[in-house]
Design a protein around this nucleic acid. Structure first.
Lengths: 223, 223
DNA sequence: CGGCGCCTTGAACCAAGTCAAGCTCTGTGG
DNA sequence: CCACAGAGCTTGACTTGGTTCAAGGCGCCG
C-alpha cells in the first residue's frame, strides 16, 4: 500500500456475494456477473496480479493508481457507476485499484468474456471499445498534467460535475486522492479550491461538497 | 499547425505510391498495405479528421500530438519502425500525427481491417492488443509527467535507447519535440542534457547524438 | 468533552520557466 | 574558399508557481 496513515477497516465479505445478476456486455446473455460490496479503502486488485475478473461499478467510486519509485501515488482514473475496469489485454493488471468510498462492483470472469469474444464479434468489439475509452481518458489525463494548478483543478471539477451529471457535487474522494490524480500537493489543491471560492466560481458548503457557480470562470481561470 | 517557425518543405507525392506490399496483421493475407513516403515536417493526419487508414512505420520517426488551448503542443508519443498508429475505435482521429524525420509508412484501409475483424477473431484480438499497447504507453507517459525534469529526461533517454535497441542514439527529433513530449521547455531539456554530460552519464558527440555511458547514473539521477 | 483525521492557511524556499544573448553547425552565394 | 544567414541549441540572470514545513481550525465519533 502507499506510505500514508494507516488504512481504514478492510474487509471483503465473500458471504455477502449476492445472487444479483446483470448483463455486462449487451447482446450476450451468457455473460452475467456477481455483485460484490467493498468497504472504503479496500484494495480490489493490485498491480502485476493476474487479471482474473472484469469489473463494473454499480454503486460508489473506485480509483486506479500506480505507486511511483519515489513512493508517491499517481491516481490514473476515478471510476463512477457505469464504468468498467480491469480490462487488460495482457494477462496481468497494470495498475492497482481501490475503493474510494464504500461501493458495489459487478464482476465477471475475464476468461469467459475472452472466450465469448472469439465467437461473438460484438463482444470483441466492446472489449476494444472499452479499452479505447480508457486510452482517450489516459491521454486527456496526460494533457492535464502539463497545465497549471488552476487549470488542473478547474478541469477536475468540471469533469467530475459532468460525469456525475450534477452542478452540486458530493466529492467521494479526499484532497489527497485529488492531489494524487492531478499531480499536485494537498496544500495546492486546497488553496486552489479556496481561490475559486473567493472568486465566486464555486461554493464550498463543506469540504467534500462543491457547487459549481460559474462554469465560465472555471474555464477562464485556466490562464 | 503549431505556433512555431515556418514549416519545412511539405509534400506528399501521390504518384510515388509504390506497389510494395506487406501484411499488416499476421495471418490475414487479405490485409495488405501500400507504402508511402512522407517528408520531415509533413502532417500525416489531423485531430478530428475521419480515421480512414491505419499506418505502420517502415522507416523514420513520426509523432502524435495535440495542440492545447494555450497554443502549446503536447507530444503524446514517438513512433519508430514497426509501430502501428491511427488505430482509433471511434471514427475520428483523436490526435494529429506528423513526420519527425523523412519516413515511409505502410497504410491500410481502416474499413477493410474492421470488416475482416468481424469474421476473423485473431484480427479483432490484434486491434484490441494494439490499442492496449497504446493505453499502457499513455499511462506510462502520464506517470512521467509528474516527475522532476531530471527524471523525465533520463527516462526519455533510456526509453528511446531501449526502443531503438542502441546505446548510441541518433535522435531523430529536435529539442522542441523532446520538450513537448516531456512537458518541459527546450532550455530545461538542454540544461539537463548538459548536466548528464557533466556527470559523465552520457556523451554528446553532436546535439542530435547521445551515447548512454552510465545507465545506472541516469536511473539514479532520478532523485 | 476530547481526540483524531482531514482540511486550511502562512511563510520560506526552490525547481523550472522566462527573457535575452551568444554559440554552432549547415548550406548558399560571392 | 570564405562570408554570411538562419535555424537549432546552449548558457546566464532573473522571476515565479508550486512545494515544503509548520501551525492551527473544523467536524465527527466515542
Amino acid at each position: 500500500m502507499h506510505p500514508r496513515p494507516a488504512a481504514p477497516v478492510q474487509y471483503r465479505d465473500a458471504n455477502s456475494r449476492s445472487s444479483q445478476v446483470s448483463s455486462l456486455f449487451f447482446g450476450s446473455p451468457e455473460l452475467v456477473g456477481t455483485s460484490i460490496p467493498y468497504a472504503k479503502g479496500t484494495e480490489i486488485y493490485g498491480e502485476n496480479e493476474p487479471a482474473e475478473y472484469l469489473y463494473k461499478v454499480l454503486r460508489g467510486t473506485v480509483c486506479s493508481y500506480k505507486i511511483l519509485s519515489d513512493g508517491r501515488r499517481q491516481v490514473e482514473r476515478f471510476y463512477f457507476p457505469g464504468d468498467v475496469l480491469g480490462l487488460e489485454a495482457g494477462s496481468d493488471h497494470q495498475s492497482s485499484v481501490e475503493a474510494v468510498s464504500d461501493c458495489t462492483l459487478l464482476i465477471v470472469k475475464r476468461s469467459i468474456v475472452l472466450s465469448v469474444a472469439v465467437r461473438d464479434p460484438e463482444v470483441a468489439r466492446q472489449l476494444w471499445s472499452y479499452t479505447a475509452t480508457e486510452l482517450n481518458s489516459a491521454r486527456n489525463h496526460a494533457t492535464l498534467l502539463v497545465k497549471s494548478a488552476h487549470e488542473r483543478v478547474a478541469h477536475f471539477l468540471l469533469e467530475t460535475a459532468r460525469r456525475l451529471s450534477a452542478n452540486d457535487i458530493q466529492l467521494p474522494m479526499s484532497r489527497q486522492d485529488i492531489a494524487d490524480y492531478l499531480g499536485l500537493t494537498i496544500e495546492t489543491v486546497s488553496r486552489t479550491f479556496t481561490q475559486f471560492r473567493d472568486h465566486a466560481a464555486i461554493e464550498l458548503p463543506t469540504s467534500r461538497r462543491v457547487v459549481i457557480r460559474d462554469q465560465g470562470a472555471l474555464g477562464f481561470l485556466n490562464s
